[in-house]
Design a protein around this nucleic acid. Structure first.
Lengths: 243, 243
DNA sequence: CAAAGTCAAGAGCAATGCTCTCATTTGTTG
DNA sequence: CAACAAATGAGAGCATTGCTCTTGACTTTG
């Protein structure tokens, strides 16, 4: 089937158009169910009902439940990636601290707007489901690529405080991992900066996850916007941006 | 029923003992299933099978699936709390940085040993399940209570660097939240320290979650122990312990 | 126009959570 | 010690899920 599509000429037949539209509808309905009832409660039968079709019919378009999960996963990664990209692009090219903050704020805003999708992407793995790396790796790494892009651009522009305050030593094994990352991603920043970039990455998502997953009590923090912005501010200092 | 138990004298009748034993067995089997198949796949029927009993029989002991989830939740919180307590208690009373590091290492070690339980406690909420706050709040706050305990003890002992490096301002609304926490938990540390304590808290769990939930690629980081210890070291500096 | 390809419907299987009824076991009490 | 009541387990049953298979109809294409 897939080779047939590849061979076929560019103009999509009406049938192909209809098929693509149906799949898009399934994804849309899947997202609604995801938002309403959560990832593990996502039911192909319910989607079929909403689509006005009998359950077995959706199997013509989606191989099984895991396939739908994968589609939603990719959809979510790309939506988050788009949000982050536009937010960061709106900041002046040389304002690296601003870009960092914009990235963090964008991640949090999207997560709070789409908690179920965020849970699917960054929460506990859905039992019995293993994401197919060959399809999810690229969209799944957009945010971290963008983040290290900001760091590295700042470093190359001399805007990154490379010798960070308490000089914590980096053991050789960790340095090896960092070196591999540096060469694979074509980076210039030194080990200490890279390591702190990783910390910023995990910390941002840790803070967002706490909020989305309800780890803060119900009313321990009322000023959550300010709390998060404050945390971003501290992380800026940790990472060497605007120290 | 419950009032009858309350009236009853202290010595538990053999029936009560048997009942307690059966519930303990159910929790044990539930944990096994949790570890093997994940939270959302936890099935009362499967537990019943393993217990050698028909499915409806377990409803005599556990009200429903959510109740079992609650029991496992409390069980997990307490096990994690115990691990953290013993790890921190093993450090000299005046070695606050050591206590902080011991807490972080204990959390991570338990999470990696019991990934399914960790997911249940700190991952995406199970769809349709709402933890009953009146039963889970106390065990669920043991770690954070211990963490702020370390901070505050360090502060009172003069071992906490209170004027942290980049003086990020704390907006009034956030200061209000922090003041409420300070009075509720009987703390002495100033706003900046408390806020950084919160950051350390979320960052530690963010780092652990990334590892447990497989957000790092499969082989991006081989030296994960060193990475985590390094992150703890940086966080020590951020928080004002051994800066 | 007819063949080939595509699609929806429906039945059906193995699970699940949960409820109900009924019989049996168990502990207490007259 | 016997009778009674409470606790327990078994089994049937209902609605739900994911998924497969067959059948009939429809659309596109040669």
């Amino acid at each position: 089937m897939t080779p047939a599509e590849a061979i076929k000429a560019k103009p999509p037949t009406p049938r192909e158009r209809a098929r693509a539209q149906t799949i898009a509808d399934i994804i849309r309905l899947g997202r609604e169910h995801l938002a309403l009832h959560g990832a593990a409660a996502l039911s192909l039968r319910a989607v079929a009902r909403d689509l006005g079709v009998v359950s077995s019919a959706v199997y013509r378009y989606v191989e099984n439940r895991d396939e739908l999960l994968t589609l939603l996963l990719i959809d979510g990664y790309n939506e988050l990636g788009d949000q982050v990209d536009t937010a960061v692009d709106a900041v002046p090219e040389d304002d690296f601290p601003g870009q960092f903050k914009a990235l963090g704020v964008a991640v949090r805003a999207w997560a709070l707007r789409e908690p179920a999708s965020y849970s699917l992407l960054f929460g506990s793995p859905v039992p019995g489901y293993q994401a197919p790396g060959e399809r999810t790796t690229v969209p799944g790494t957009r945010v971290i690529f963008r983040l290290v892009g900001i760091f590295d651009a700042a470093y190359r522009a001399g805007a990154l405080d490379a010798h960070v305050s308490p000089a914590v030593v980096i053991p050789p094994a960790l340095a090896e991992d960092l070196a591999a990352i540096r060469s694979e991603m074509n980076l210039a920043a030194p080990d200490a900066s890279l390591a702190r970039g990783v910390l910023a990455w995990t910390s941002v998502f840790g803070a967002v996850s706490f909020e989305v997953f309800g780890q803060y009590g119900l009313d321990t923090f009322k000023a959550r916007d300010q709390l998060f912005e404050h945390q971003l501010g501290v992380l800026q200092g940790v990472v060497g941006l605007q120290g």
